[in-house]
Design a protein around this nucleic acid. Sequence first.
DNA 1: GGCGTTATACTCGGATACCACGTGTCCGAGTACCCCCGG
DNA 2: CCGGGGGTACTCGGACACGTGGTATCCGAGTATAACGCC
Lengths: 154, 154
Amino acid sequence: MKLPETSEWVLHAAAVIAQLPSGATVSAAQLSEHFGVPGPYLSKQLAKLVRSGILTGSTGPRGGFRLARIPERISILDLVAAVDGAADPYVCRELRQQGRGAARPEDCTQPCALAAVMRDAHEAWRESLSAVSLADIVAGLPAGVVDKNRRLLG
Amino acid sequence: MKLPETSEWVLHAAAVIAQLPSGATVSAAQLSEHFGVPGPYLSKQLAKLVRSGILTGSTGPRGGFRLARIPERISILDLVAAVDGAADPYVCRELRQQGRGAARPEDCTQPCALAAVMRDAHEAWRESLSAVSLADIVAGLPAGVVDKNRRLLG
DNA sequence: GGCGTTATACTCGGATACCACGTGTCCGAGTACCCCCGG
DNA sequence: CCGGGGGTACTCGGACACGTGGTATCCGAGTATAACGCC
């Protein structure tokens, strides 16, 4: 079980975008330079955030990305789910009802206990990620980093 | 982010093995018939459980697998970690210190806040899985399933 | 009849191909800006 | 000097190859069993 490496890119990129002055935008090329990652591939990931309604993208000169809503209402879970999908990593294929030892349907009125445990764990993971907003991340950045970003974005 | 499909196999197989009479064993071939999954591949996964110290495997006729310790002391996390590894799905590559906008080392005295959030979420997932033991799963099985397994294992 | 030896059949364990998803790249459609020209 | 039109350059968005890890399979090493022959 592993998240795409681009998850980290998207999280850091969103943190930078959140520091933009109101109305300003930043391009994928600028961000790729900022982080030292492949530009076109980063652009591909940011497009996912646009499709998820987290960012809005504008084309043309002075175009780029900006947040679609205030950072207080963007959770880390929103970002991770946008780039990786919201599906549960464990999928129950009803193994108990297959093969020679298949359980009879009348014994399967309750959902599979193992699937329930895995689902609860995933829910705990989601809760933990949704408890932190992008604004919380930005608020915790060291002053030096904020200054550096301000210079980039200004 | 997704778990190997074999995670489900291992969880169900462990639940069956936990119902074995004391001292008895069950072979990978029996289990693969029971669940309708490829035998050699299942054997490969069970070998991981042996390496993790959850099962013990004996060769020869009447050989097979049995639990290495009581099911109360085997958590779902133990099983999942054995088959998928215990690594955090999110790996922090210190993106903040790379590229043109790299933060200075003196601004990175604190660990990356994003990595910390992801780590906490993973820890919540692990806690949730470690709270349930194999004995809990077996105790919750319907009576019909237990009977069916008893007939298989007896 | 009891015991040692041998042959056997069955088990796990690791080494070997195949395939899908993430990774990396490219090019095209669309748009706001800027310059130029005319009034 | 001011307004309109066209060209331009820049942006995002989706379509196209490549590599790594999961999936599936096989065969070999090792061992408890069972039969067999001998004492």
